[in-house]
Design a protein around this nucleic acid. Structure first.
Lengths: 262, 262
DNA sequence: CGCTTACTTGAGCCATGTCAATTGAGGTGG
DNA sequence: CCACCTCAATTGACATGGCTCAAGTAAGCG
């Protein structure tokens, strides 16, 4: 249960992972637009292999670079965009993470390299709030120019189509099947989904940081904060995971998988 | 409650609507490929304004036409594709309807003019079964040629991007928020979503045919068949809807909206 | 017209929600 | 560095919506 036992074996390790995943922005001037001080380019970004420039030839990356030159910083708790805002740009998450909320309910969790705003392409109006879960930074991708560039760069078209496609089965389809799952399955599915996504980004899949608070997680999963807590406690008591507020460590992947029933 | 009362006022009207929505295929030769006997073309298809050729110039429609020449009929209960099948084509539903199922659970409902298979673009493998809910017909849209044509026809690219985008918020996002809804809200949301979708297709939104069986609906909504029945009965007893097995008529849209809480 | 499948309804129980209190963590001013 | 304050997380006791099991009724089909 960890509680205030400060000599826990995995403690340092877990803090390490925390450092790894936490946005390393210390420059916290208010949400600025335009190129940030540090000259950043897709070709040097550590996310390039999973983000927009994925699969592009070196020379073509420059064109994407030009497109995404504008950055924007968003402070923890601030909105990147709000429901009702006109859709003009997609946003590629550079660092940090976001939740999307509709009618007071959390409907999505977005990690680095993911594109925010894809669902507004059809309606031209954002239909949810995108709120930063920590100090974050995004690359602004103006949509109209992007579609023009897509016509020139088949590989870019491919990437965008794939990004849209995988957004359909967001979280590996977890949320879609969520309605039919028990509260325990929801929590476990949530943790496994996060694990897989962090792994995809190149981080350890067994130890990661959940940026959302308990009530956000609960809202996201369609259960209550109390139930979420109880289940996390139970999973920990049974030795399947260890938690320390926002940090989670997967201890028994197999038994977790079994709980999901696949 | 209708039961076996044959003199119900709305009876004829409802049957009329049934005829309207039911696939009018009487030619039921086994699932054939290639151009069906009736020479069909996008430019004469009654779905053209909401389907692939949407927004295209007359001359360009011919190119889409060429792409989608192959049709395929799928008998009620048969699979258009199955989980694990290699992804090669998208399918535009020409008539009829499909459910998608994963692990024995219903995860989607697809109506005419919708594109099936979009989520497999990223993985190249279908990850659900697509089962016809009635005798249906689809236009086969080979994916690789489609992407090439998209590079030539910006309006086609636009349509595909929008189709993908609106698939993200499938059913107006109903399913996403499903986890947080009561059983009653799920059923009501399901009916309202269907109503809106039929309306989009040009049919009456107040009177339509639910092609799925009760247990499919229940599975789709993450509740039990019994609960689904009870709720439908209650909604009817309270005068919000009238049902006769697969046919539904919305009687009090406002009160239904209120139940959803928006 | 009988058989099979789909739908509907009832009774009791359990998982999860609700309400409420306690503990713990992190930030801030003295 | 400590005492305090606030917000987040956890835990307990009780109420209830939806599930399970089971029976009955209606509809489609050969």
């Amino acid at each position: 249960m960890l509680k205030n036992v400060s000599a826990d074996v995995t403690d340092t390790g877990r803090n390490e992972s925390l450092g790894l995943l936490r946005s390393n922005l210390t420059d916290v001037r208010s949400t600025t637009s335009q190129a940030s001080g540090v000259r950043s380019s897709c070709s040097t970004c550590h996310l390039r292999s999973v983000c927009l420039p994925r699969g592009l030839e070196q020379e073509h990356i420059a064109q994407v670079d030009h497109l995404t030159r504008a950055k924007r910083k968003v402070r923890r708790g601030a909105a990147l965009f709000r429901r009702g805002d006109l859709f003009e740009s997609l946003y590629a998450i550079r660092s940090g993470s976001f939740k999307s909320t509709q009618y007071g309910k959390v409907t999505g969790l977005h990690l680095p390299a993911e594109l925010l705003g894809l669902d507004a392409i059809s309606s031209q109006i954002h239909d949810y709030d995108a709120i930063a879960l920590e100090d974050s930074e995004v690359c602004i991708v103006p949509y109209a120019p992007l579609t023009l560039l897509m016509l020139q760069l088949p590989d870019l078209q491919t990437h965008i189509l794939e990004a849209l496609s995988s957004d359909i089965t967001r979280d590996g389809g977890l949320l879609l099947r969520l309605g039919a799952m028990s509260a325990e399955q929801r929590v476990v599915g949530f943790l496994m989904g996060l694990s897989a996504r962090y792994q995809f980004l190149g981080y350890a899949g067994t130890r990661f940081s959940v940026r959302m608070r308990r009530d956000d997680i609960a809202s996201y999963l369609g259960i209550t904060e109390e139930t979420t807590c109880r289940i996390l406690s139970r999973l920990e008591r049974d030795g399947l995971i260890e938690t320390r507020i926002k940090d989670v460590e997967i201890k028994d992947l197999n038994r977790l998988r079994n709980l999901l029933g696949y």
